[in-house]
């Protein structure tokens, strides 16, 4: 660890745990997209979504317990990323709704897009904040 590295010494695997739900919702999304507009068994997609949501919750719990941590830097990045990824998720959701996807498949797809829109800003915010000084935000 260099003199400039402000990473806590026993940092939990927050980045790795953020990538896992992202992979799960991408697999779920591919499964759904490969079967739309035909009939489809929703069980695999529901299982993937539930597992992804649980992993996101665990990741958030691990993150909020981090002390000390550069929260200013985290929120600055995560906030803007949330805005950007909400637009991207919104665009994808809009395409599904426009194409007439309704009911449970739409609900699952929106759930997956929500996980995606939350987990990516979390990952980006953490990736920046872990290298920032604990007591202050990013350098201006």
């Amino acid at each position: 660890m260099s003199a400039q590295d402000h990473t806590p010494r026993n940092i939990p695997p927050i980045a790795e745990l953020a990538i896992a739900p992202m992979i799960l919702v991408i697999i779920g999304g591919i499964y759904m997209a490969a079967h739309i507009p035909g009939s489809i068994s929703l069980t695999p997609a529901i299982c993937l979504l539930v597992a992804a949501v649980l992993l996101v919750i665990v990741d958030i719990v691990l993150l909020v317990r981090l002390r000390p941590f550069a929260w200013n830097a985290f929120w600055r990045v995560a906030g803007w990323a949330l805005l950007g990824y909400a637009v991207i998720a919104g665009m994808i959701g809009y395409a599904f709704i426009y194409d007439g996807t309704r009911g449970a498949p739409l609900g699952i797809l929106i759930g997956m897009l929500s996980v995606f829109a939350i987990v990516v800003p979390l990952l980006l915010g953490f990736a920046v904040a872990r290298y920032q000084p604990m007591t202050q935000g990013i350098a201006e």
Binding site: A15, A18, I19, M22, A73, V77, V120, L123, L124, F126, A127, V128, R130, Y131, Q132, I138
Partner: peptide, 14 residues
């Protein structure tokens, strides 16, 4: 999203 973009952002903030 998992590797490339976080690295890009972390470099810029560093």
């Amino acid at each position: 999203i998992g590797i490339l973009e976080p690295a890009n952002l972390a470099v810029l903030f560093e």
